[in-house]
């Protein structure tokens, strides 16, 4: 089990945190509280599945927060225009995939560094959205939008099922489908991958497209929780997602990591904010703790890389 050491140690961290909460603040495990925490984490999990593919291939995408906002507003506008929910979902996913394809083209096609490319698209999309919406919320959505028109309880269930479905498909895809293995291969050794008949540029492009599409899904799963769509939504999402992926044991140098680790990473980070509240600690520490966890996680990777 040496291979899954990281997954196990993060699980241990999460268990310890939950144990402390169980003793100090059992209210954390109240049904409604738990559901709220999990539904808030669901979009992060979905985006993290896509980010895992991108980081596995040794790239990064920090524009997903802006993609998320664009997809959310697009979904809201489509719903407002009276499109049926399945079409709204489809539209958001297609839009996300297109945004991802643009990043993928710049990174895989033009061989530009992904960090700067996505930094540029990050600001461009965000400002474009601000320009077109001028901060205005998308309001008066169709009745079928919030909680899918099912009411909060069943709506939450649908969100959780959706996120879990994406996650499980991702697990199966990475473990059991030929293409899934390509992402590991390209990130592990690009040249060896080429010799094994894999096209690294195509795989990299694919990772960005899938990430974009999943950001579209995440945007819808998030948007349906509210009565209207805030165009500023998704600010800082990239940090949450990258943090969860890195903490979950996906190596930033590519080629290593599992979605199970990412799941634990997402849960761990999702618990921090409510845990701060329940432990009566100032909630403003969330971001700082998140940053410290990222640095600790990559530092652990650095030590390991040096010793091997």
């Amino acid at each position: 089990m040496k291979r899954y050491r990281r997954e196990l140690s993060v699980t241990a961290c999460l268990s310890a945190l939950l144990l402390v909460l169980a003793v100090v603040a059992p209210a954390f495990f109240g049904r409604q509280q738990l559901l709220t925490t999990l539904t808030a984490a669901a979009p992060v999990l979905v985006a993290a599945c896509g980010m895992t593919l991108v980081i596995l291939t040794r790239q990064i995408d920090i524009s997903i927060g802006s993609q998320f906002a664009l997809c959310s507003v697009a979904a809201g506008l489509m719903a407002k225009a009276g499109l049926p929910m399945p079409l709204v979902v489809l539209g958001a996913v297609a839009g996300g995939a297109a945004l991802g394809a643009f990043n993928g083209w710049l990174v895989a096609g033009l061989e530009l560094p992904s960090i700067v490319v996505t930094l540029a698209t990050f600001v461009t999309w965000r400002e474009t959205l601000r320009w077109s919406r001028e901060g205005e919320f998308v309001k008066d959505l169709a009745d079928g939008f919030q909680w899918w028109g099912l009411g909060q309880g069943r709506g939450q269930a649908v969100i959780l099922m959706g996120a879990l479905g994406v996650f499980l498909i991702g697990v199966i895809f990475l473990k059991k489908v030929g293409a899934g293995r390509f992402f590991y291969a390209v990130g592990s050794d690009r040249e060896a991958a080429r010799l094994a008949g894999i096209r690294p540029a195509a795989v990299t492009f694919g990772a960005f497209v899938i990430l974009g599409a999943l950001v579209g899904v995440a945007a819808v799963l998030n948007a349906v929780r509210f009565a209207d769509v805030d165009p500023k939504t998704g600010t800082g999402l990239e940090m949450q997602v990258i943090a969860a992926v890195v903490v979950g044991g996906v190596a930033i140098s590519g080629g290593r990591g599992t979605l199970w680790g990412v799941l634990v990473g997402v849960l761990l980070l999702a618990c921090i904010a409510p845990a701060l509240v329940f432990l009566k600690l100032p909630p403003q520490w969330e971001k700082a703790i998140q940053g410290a966890i990222i640095l600790l996680a990559v530092a652990a990777d650095g030590e390991k890389g040096k010793s091997s």
Binding site: G187, D189, A192, L195, G255
Partner: peptide, 8 residues
């Protein structure tokens, strides 16, 4: 060897 170090 042209293997993938991260895979089994």
């Amino acid at each position: 060897p042209a293997l993938f170090p991260d895979l089994t």
